[in-house]
Design a protein around this nucleic acid. Structure first.
Length: 833
RNA sequence: GCCGGAGUGGCGGAAUUGGUAGACGCAGGGGACUUAAAAUCCCCCGGUAGAAAUACUGUACCGGUUCGAGUCCGGUCUCCGGUACCA
């Protein structure tokens, strides 16, 4: 045999066989328990990176294990194939986005197969293909009919580089999530989905997601940002207007010393018109409009603002307080105006200090000197300076004040959310056309469902400038109104690609259905997804949009499940160390710009896919960061060679032409210990790979089994039947991690069936029981000695044996044993004085 | 600031219910085989003292609960992730 196993030949051989045998094709078997393993589908950039390899290796272990464990496993893959890069390639190289995307899909398909991933390719979907986006359009129309899609003229986030609008969630630190360009505001008429209608449900259901990491749940909760408070009406002195504010601290109403409106507040211009304040106020509004999102929200920013010359009357005590405008108040949260309580809110405090405004404490917070405040006192306390509420705990006062305001029609209890409606229009070509038609007479009308899909036109120009490329089509825009039949115009914007990825997991359940989005029977069998695996960067965007879609589809009667993903595993980043420009060694996420990228192909060529998978799964638990180590890869390769040699030597040298006895007898201590090791490994790997998802420790225990087998082979009297069992078990338990080499060796052993069809072995509980156990002997909790005792010895017997150990005898000499703790099969602890 | 999470050998990491801290691997050291190298196989590998047996010490820091704490509780520090004029 060769020194090193020929991974290239073995891996291509088995990939071909699996494909020919349709090894991982799944059909609905309604009597069988199902398991849905899903990995986030990739954007077909053309090249797989290590993050993909990690994501899909994890998913593949779960899928292969669950299949062996007797589940009807669905493990699909597809392509999130609409999006900007294809369009940019078209602008740059003159290739049509479809051609570019399609060729990338083919490349990536091959790369995925070269990793030996167990996908059912019959369920493949690509969001850019008409058979998929037809149903996307159909779905949009259902949203529209349900009143969940609407068009609104509004200031929107605009990315000048991508030349398109962005949803709130796609603005990160004031910049475009994709290209990092600072986002500006633009006034446009755009389509929105009413995700805010589902805010409470999206929030409340989070607590039912037991299999989700707390981190992700908290991020979603914060993003939804529910707060309870009150709206309070303040009459504006000398006008017939009422300024409504939102506050979470109605208990501080007596501490209001001024009011602030957002510069965009619709009242502002009216209130200053014709007064001496008009000019400075208008200048301030202009200035704040000019500022970018980053400037407006920057941390170090000093408070700015402008008095507008008007006052409000405090409804609780009739006090007159001045009104300011300032950009620290946002128009799109609450009512766009606030009551300012500088004593108890830090932002108001800063503003009051700068503008010399009055500060009145109204809650006596323990350990705070209210007469010399250096910062706002936001904590709980007792009401003061607040008339009839004095002496109450401020938490109780909140309820009382709200009730009193409501009874006098001066305010009401209100719930507010940070979550905004989802802006889904994009001024781009490579996305699903929004199936809406504008008619002069009928307004916006959805396309007739029998006319779907509305295909993307092919006669467009990609200039990268101006409006959506769809405007350049001669045929696309003109149409007739589905309602009245008169000439009308189609919507030329396309959908945010996050819509496409919000329901792909449902389409996998019935990917080829031409008559419906899917068969509910199939979807109800497969859904929810039992295990979803992907990067934590989707914690808010994709995962919340998908939950929203699932709820809507549930409400539309399309499927039973209300939550799409039962369990979620967010895998950590793949990092690698490099030397930065200052000569420091740093570890960072693999990225082209840092030059610390390792291409999967490089590793596969040198060591094979099994080694790549093994290393990635072994080097760290899945949710943690994984630091790439070339030496570690080498080690994984070494291990696979060790396995290969072990099995090969067994076949040629040990078994040879001998017939393996069908009965296994345990003849001696070596046999007993090897047999125990076999059973321990089956148990441990099953628990770690199928339940805890700690693949690193699962692999460690497989390595231990291999070490044990080498020792046995060398030192023990060979028990052929037992060793044969060990060899077979080893291949089965290692198969989910390293499918090619194990499948090959399985065949070499002479099996005529396939390993991918094998059942997970059951372990023998009785084989796990040791005859003799090692008991730890402690004095005052410190380890002093160990003693071997028969399994399940009585407490008294153990204590006696421990006492009689020479070392313990000596230690106990002249001391009084105050107490003795005996934990059977584990420990004896003498407490002495 | 707020909300999460984490701090264990030279390194990645184990220790699942409070019961031998450091499994497994990497790196390192020593040995066997070889003309030699590679590969392979075996042994050692937290710290201090010691030739060794062994003793003491050790899971970021301080304190607590407990017969017993990496694990539980209180406080402190550091790092990572998320988020932020959200009223």
């Amino acid at each position: 045999m060769q020194d090193r196993y020929d991974f290239k030949a073995i891996e291509t051989k088995w990939q071909k066989i699996w494909a020919n045998e349709q090894a991982f094709k799944t059909t609905e078997d309604y009597d069988k328990k199902k398991y849905y393993v899903l990995e986030m589908f990739p954007y077909p950039s053309g090249k797989l990176h290590m993050g993909h390899v990690r994501n899909y290796s994890i998913g593949d272990v779960v899928a292969r294990f669950k299949k062996m464990d007797g589940y009807n496993v669905i493990h699909p893959m597809g392509w999130d194939s609409f999006g900007l890069p294809a369009e940019n390639a078209a602008i740059k190289n003159g290739i049509h986005p479809f051609t570019w995307t399609n060729s990338n899909i083919n490349d990536m398909h091959d790369q995925l197969n070269s990793l030996g991933l167990s996908y059912d390719w019959d369920r493949e979907v690509a969001t850019c293909k008409p058979d998929y986006y037809k149903w996307m359009q159909w779905l949009f129309i259902q949203f529209y009919k349900k009143g969940l899609a609407y068009k609104k003229d509004n200031p929107v986030n605009w990315c000048p580089d991508c030349e398109t609008v962005l949803a709130n969630e796609q603005v990160v630190d004031g910049c475009c999530e994709r290209c990092k360009t600072p986002v500006t505001k633009k006034h446009l008429s755009q389509w929105y989905l009413k995700i805010t209608d589902y805010a409470d449900r999206l929030l409340n259901n989070i607590d039912t997601l037991e299999g989700w990491p707390d981190k992700v749940k908290t991020m979603q909760k914060n993003w939804i940002g529910r707060s309870e408070g009150a709206e309070v009406k303040f009459d504006i002195d000398g006008t017939d207007k009422t300024l409504v504010v939102y506050t979470t601290r109605p208990d501080t109403l007596y501490g209001v010393t001024y009011m602030v409106m957002a510069p965009e507040h619709p009242y502002v211009l009216e209130l200053v018109e014709g007064t001496e304040y008009e000019t400075p106020v208008k200048a301030y509004i202009e200035e704040s409009k000019r500022k970018s999102e980053i400037e407006r929200t920057s941390l170090t920013k000093e408070k700015t603002g402008e008095f507008i010359g008007k006052y409000t009357i405090n409804p609780v005590n009739g006090k007159k307080v001045p009104i300011y405008i300032s950009d620290y108040v946002m128009m799109d949260y609450g009512t766009g105006a606030i009551m300012a309580v500088p004593a108890h809110d830090q932002r108001d405090f800063d503003f009051a200090k700068k503008f010399g405004l009055e500060i009145i404490p109204v809650v006596d917070v323990p350990d705070v000197d209210l007469d010399n405040l250096t910062e706002a006192a936001a904590a709980e306390g007792t009401m003061i300076n607040s008339g009839e509420y004095n002496g109450m705990n401020n938490k109780d006062a909140i309820k009382k004040i709200i009730a009193d305001l409501e009874s006098k029609d001066l305010g009401k209890k209100t719930v507010n959310f940070k979550l905004r409606d989802w802006l889904i229009s994009r001024q781009r070509y490579w996305g699903t056309p929004i199936p809406m038609i504008h008619c002069e007479e009928c307004g916006w009308v959805p396309e007739k469902e029998e006319n779907l899909p509305i295909l993307l036109p092919t006669d467009v120009e990609f200039t990268g400038k101006g409006d959506s490329p769809l405007t350049t089509s001669k045929t696309f825009r003109q149409c007739t109104c589905p309602k009245c039949g008169k000439p009308a115009e189609r919507e030329i914007d396309t959908m945010d690609t996050f819509l496409d990825s919000s329901w792909y997991f449902l389409r996998y359940c019935d990917a080829k259905n031409e008559d419906a989005i899917f068969d509910p029977k199939k979807v109800n069998y497969w859904m929810s997804v039992d295990q979803y695996i992907g990067g934590v960067e989707h914690a808010i965007l994709h995962l919340m949009y998908s939950r929203f879609f699932q709820m809507v589809m549930h409400d539309l009667g399309l499927c039973d499940a209300e939550e799409p993903f039962k369990n979620l595993l967010t895998q950590g980043m793949v990092t690698k160390g490099y030397t930065d420009k200052d000569g420091n060694f740093v570890v960072a996420k693999m990225s082209k710009s840092l030059g610390n990228v390792v291409a999967p192909k490089e590793i596969q060529d040198k060591y094979g896919a099994d080694t790549a998978r093994l290393f990635i799964l072994f080097a760290a638990p899945p949710e943690k960061e994984l630091e790439w180590s070339d030496a570690g890869v080498e080690g994984s390769y070494r291990f696979l060679n060790r396995v290969y040699r072990l099995v090969y030597e067994y076949i040629t040298d040990i078994r040879g032409d001998l017939k393996v006895p069908s009965e296994i007898t345990i003849n001696n201590a070596d046999d007993k210990s090897l047999n125990m090791m076999i059973n321990v490994t089956i148990k441990k790997v099953g628990e770690d790979a199928g339940g805890r998802f700690n693949f690193n420790t699962a692999i460690a225990s497989i390595m231990e089994l291999v070490n044990e087998m080498y020792k046995y082979k060398q030192n023990a009297e060979m028990n052929l039947a037992l060793f044969d069992k060990a060899i077979n078990c080893l291949l089965i338990v290692a198969n989910p991690f390293v499918p090619h080499i194990t499948e090959e060796l399985w065949e070499q052993l002479g099996h005529t069936d396939r390993l991918y069809q094998a059942a997970w072995p059951t372990y023998d509980e009785s084989a796990l029981v040791k005859d003799e156990v090692e008991i730890i002997v402690q004095i005052n909790g410190k380890l002093k000695d160990k003693v071997a005792m028969p399994n399940n010895s009585d407490k008294e017997v153990i204590e006696e044996a421990a006492k009689n150990l020479d070392k313990i005898k000596g230690e106990l000499e002249g001391k009084i044993v105050v107490k003795t703790i005996v934990v059977p099969n584990k420990i004896v602890n003498f407490v002495v004085k």
